[in-house]
Each structure stands twice: as C-alpha cells, then as structure tokens.
C-alpha cells in the first residue's frame, strides 16, 4: 500500500466517522462542529484528487461561510432542543434501514461497472488549468449561460433570504 492510499484511508475514516457524529450527536452545536470536521475531510479528499482549487473553495465556502451561517442559526434557535433526550424521530430505524439498503444497492450497482477497479494515476502538476476553466465560464461557446443563471440564482437567493429573515415590526404586534 502506498503512502497516498494510507492517507486516503485515514481521511475517509475520519470523514465518515464525523459524518455519523453529525447525524448522531444529541447536542446541536456538537453536530455543527462535527460537520466542519466532515467538510475539512472532504476538502482533503479533493486535494488527494489533485483538485487543489476545489479544496480551497471547499474550505472558503463551506467551512468559512456555510458552517458559520449554520452556527449562527443554531445560536438564534437553540433554546428548545438542548434539553431533549433524543434528536431523532421515534421510528428512526426505518430511515437507517433505508440508508443501509441504498448503500448496498449503490455499491452493488457500481461494482457491475467495468471501470470500477480503475486506478487514478498521478496527473501532471499543472493539470487543473484554471485559466482554461475561467475562460470557459465566460466564453459564449462554453458555459457562460449556466454561469450567469447561477449568478442570478445566488443573487435572488440572497435577496430572498434577507427579505424572509427580516423582522417586520408591524406584524410583531
């Protein structure tokens, strides 16, 4: 086993364990901190795939922005749930069974694919070619339409979020 495989296995085990703790923690704040651990593990997985740009974006967007938003929301809504003995619904075994069955189906389906055992070889160091990626995003022959639609979606979502979360004094009476 090569060094990179050992790194992958350690990171994958830590990531999956943190993922389980996200859905299993009783305290919401612990759950959010485990989520940050999971996101960091995913960033390291991106780095092992030589997608350094997306590893950095993962840290910036997910850990820097999204988890901070989640923690803020937890602090604004924390009062009720902290005394609860359980965070999951009564028939939690049914979703657990479904998740296990889905995992079995996915693994079985993937195993029938002929390239499933393909090896990921090391690519040249400059393979990511961010200049070409950036050019393709603003090139009319490339991906400018999806890029602009995504920009408008993000803008609309942020304006909508501000509008929804805004406290309206006249309604508070």
């Amino acid at each position: 086993m090569s060094g990179l495989q050992v790194v992958f296995l350690i990171v994958a085990v830590v990531t999956l364990f943190s993922g389980v703790m996200v859905v299993a923690s009783r305290k919401m704040m612990h759950s959010a901190l485990w989520l940050i651990m999971t996101l960091l593990g995913v960033a390291i997985l991106f780095a092992t795939l030589q997608a350094g740009f997306f590893a950095i974006v993962q840290v910036l967007v997910y850990i820097g922005a999204i988890s901070i938003l989640i923690i803020f929301t937890l602090m604004l809504t924390r009062r009720v749930m902290d005394e609860e003995t359980t965070q999951v619904i009564k028939g939690w075994w049914l979703p657990a069974l479904m998740a296990v069955i889905l995992f079995g189906l996915l693994a079985g389906l993937l195993a029938t694919w002929e390239d499933f055992q393909g090896m990921l070889n090391e690519l040249p160091a400059d393979v990511e070619n961010l200049a070409a990626f950036g050019t393709a995003l603003v090139n009319p022959a490339g991906y400018v339409i999806p890029f602009e639609v995504a920009s408008i979606l993000l803008l609309a979502a942020l304006v909508g979020a501000i509008y929804i979360a805004m406290e309206r004094k006249e309604k508070a009476e």
Binding site: S2, A12, V20, V23, T38, V42, A99, L102
Partner: peptide
C-alpha cells in the same frame, strides 16, 4: 495509486449517512 472505487464507495457511504440524517432528525 488510489483506486477509483474507494472514492465512489466513500461518497456513497457519506450520501447514505446524509440521507439517514434528512429522514430521521427532528
């Protein structure tokens, strides 16, 4: 180097953990 299958299995496991969380958390 790392087989592609390891990534796919890890991603499938993470997806199923997330699915369980969506369906079961209050």
């Amino acid at each position: 180097m790392i087989p592609l299958s390891w990534y796919l299995i890890a991603a499938a496991a993470l997806f199923c953990i997330g699915l369980f969380g969506v369906l079961s958390r209050k």
